[in-house]
Design a protein around this nucleic acid. Structure first.
Length: 297
DNA sequence: GAGTTTGAAACT
DNA sequence: CAGTTTCAAACTC
């Protein structure tokens, strides 16, 4: 208990340090892993300066828990504070701390108050790391790898095996536009693909690079932020109008996710039901089961 | 397997 | 930036 309190204190210390060091608040929201509501959607810092690394770390944490509703790990939630701290670059902090402490560290006094503080912090950092490892292990035990069966969208953050890829059938675009699932995922077309006049075959590397560049330039012109069209792990929200987000046309549905406030879909049937409703449904099914049992007897 | 529908991407 | 066209995948028969 005492140890945990020390850890908590040091987390607060680390947070304060981090906050005082943060400079940019611009960024983007990416879909929350548990799709609860708008306020659950999480902020990811914009891709500038060192924040790129932070963004990647955040996304890694996000995608780790991006599973279908049945597989979601909300039953065993990762403590947010720990998660946040775990996303902070511990090494960065240590470096900064070392800088601050450089004069003291030269001091012959081995156990100065600063030194003690440093040791405390190091200890807590190790504790946090340990906790993190334990959490990840628990999560990994719970999570089952969901396989995308219809498209190439990678549902979790794991690398896609070659044989899990779906071949494309592009006829007009030489597999050099985002319509092409192979190109979109930045991988070469395979022998299984039935594309016409394919340039995404590894033999037209220059054309591929040009196409990628063009898309990125267009993207930057169109929107004044650093979105990455080639990051198929990000969900920016669907715009389904007719299929109620329950068919394979829907990006969210394909990924086994619920639509969120970021979607612009109409008559959506792929949204998370309010918890009260869910509870009611559960109660109803239980009642139904009881009735069935009784009627069987 | 051919034709239709659909939503994303590209274009105007 | 809204409307239109093009595209390839999903779907239907």
């Amino acid at each position: 208990m005492q140890k945990w309190k020390t850890v908590q204190n040091n987390i607060v210390f680390l947070l304060n340090l981090r906050m005082s060091n943060s400079h940019s608040h611009s960024g983007m929201y990416i879909q929350s892993s548990n799709d609860l509501a708008k306020d659950e959607d999480q902020f990811v810092p914009k891709d500038n300066d060192q924040s790129g690394d932070i963004k990647q770390e955040f996304q890694r944490a996000q995608t780790q828990s991006q599973l279908s509703s049945a597989e979601q790990i909300e039953d065993i939630p990762v403590p947010r504070l720990t998660l946040f701290v775990s996303q902070m670059s511990i090494d960065d902090y240590q470096n900064q701390y070392k800088k601050q402490m450089s004069i003291e560290s030269m001091s012959p006094i081995k156990y100065s108050p600063q030194k003690k503080q440093e040791m405390k912090v190091e200890q807590s950092v190790q504790d946090i790391k340990q906790l993190e490892i334990q959490e990840v292990q628990t999560i990994q035990q719970i999570q089952t790898r969901r396989k995308a069966n219809k498209t190439n969208y990678n549902v979790d953050d794991s690398p896609i095996e070659q044989d899990e890829m779906k071949p494309c059938h592009c006829t007009k675009t030489h597999c050099l536009q985002l319509y092409c699932s192979c190109f979109h995922n930045r991988r070469q077309c395979m022998s299984e693909c039935k594309c016409n006049d394919c340039y995404n075959d590894g033999k037209h590397e220059e054309d591929v690079l040009k196409a990628v560049e063009q898309i990125k330039i267009k993207e930057q012109r169109a929107s004044h932020h650093d979105l990455d069209s080639f990051d198929t792990k990000q969900v920016w929200g669907c715009k389904c109008k007719k299929t109620k987000c329950v068919k394979g046309y829907c990006e969210c549905f394909i990924r086994g996710k619920k639509c969120t406030s970021h979607c612009q879909c109409t008559e959506c049937e792929n949204r998370r039901q309010p918890q009260k409703k869910q509870k009611n449904n559960q109660q109803n099914t239980q009642i139904n089961k009881k009735i069935k049992k009784k009627s069987q007897v």
